[in-house]
Design a protein around this nucleic acid. Structure first.
Lengths: 152, 152
DNA sequence: TGGGACACTATGGGCGTCAACGGGAATAGG
DNA sequence: CCTATTCCCGTTGACGCCCATAGTGTCCCA
């Protein structure tokens, strides 16, 4: 398995450390990530975490923008400047910095959420709220389908 | 037989374990699933369970979306983040985590329902209620009345 | 055709292993 | 010199592995 799947909640200890789920660590190693990079999500109180290839996705997007417009500049600032490296200690833990706490609202517990090629870090309560909203939006997509059909 | 068919109810033991019906286990083995993945159903208090190929359909669908729009994010969140792995122990049992219990309402017993390429996990009472509703909807279709109307 | 041995499944429980977690000591950095 | 980070160790609890038992259905043979 080489994708980040499933989700887990871990406690933060007195030193601000939190264990990355063993399953995720296995994926990190399998993908050969030497270090993790965490990016503040644009519109969510969460961090996107992955290898440096996480940036490829955004850089491709930036390349589509007109370099003379502000949008490209904003995007570059966002993905190159609004992130932080996460070092795994030898027990597989990372430290929750204020930079992360401010954006996510994380205080005592951290929810790790697989997203395929990367994973996310959430404050568990906010994650639950967002999950309910996302679920409701997807259900609306289904409105147009016929009775008895199972889309997706 | 390589499809998941029929249904069974099993008891959960003191450790939270429950036996997957032998017939389903045989299908799992025949299909070569090394591990099971369980996904929270969008609109039902049930889990869809199958191999990782369960995700293929969703991922193909996601690939059609603009990856920077919310819809793609919602879909990825649903299929990558709102699932969990189910490990079969060597006696063919799986463990009912809180993640599953919260969504399904499962507490003491589990209903396994074959769905062809995958199967579902239900709280038996809710399954019965849902089955009655589905049956009623089909009857209405047959009698030509519109959903919401009372037949007869 | 009835009885019984056998096979298999579901279920319960003991136990070892490992991940998560807490905390002290060493180290680096300011 | 003080603080923050890193390393390392011990503890604990969850989970996987293993064995035992009971209930049930099957098959064979008398």
């Amino acid at each position: 398995m080489d994708r980040f799947l499933s989700n887990t909640v871990s406690r933060i200890d007195a030193k601000g450390r939190v264990s990355v789920p063993a399953h995720f660590r296995a994926v990190v190693q399998k993908r050969g990530y030497s270090e993790l990079y965490a990016l503040r999500c644009l519109d969510l109180p969460a961090m996107d975490v992955g290898g440096l290839d996480l940036l490829d996705r955004y850089e491709q997007r930036i390349a589509l923008e007109d370099p003379f417009l502000q949008t490209a500049d904003d995007m570059s600032f966002f993905c190159h400047g609004d992130g932080t490296f996460l070092k795994l200690d030898q027990d597989g833990r990372i430290t929750m910095s204020d930079f992360i706490r401010e954006h996510t609202g994380i205080s005592a517990e951290v929810a790790f959420v697989g997203r395929g090629n990367f994973f996310q870090i959430w404050e568990p309560g906010r994650l639950a709220a967002y999950g309910a909203q996302a679920r409701a939006r997807l259900l609306q997509l289904r409105q147009g389908t016929k009775p008895g059909e199972r889309p997706e």
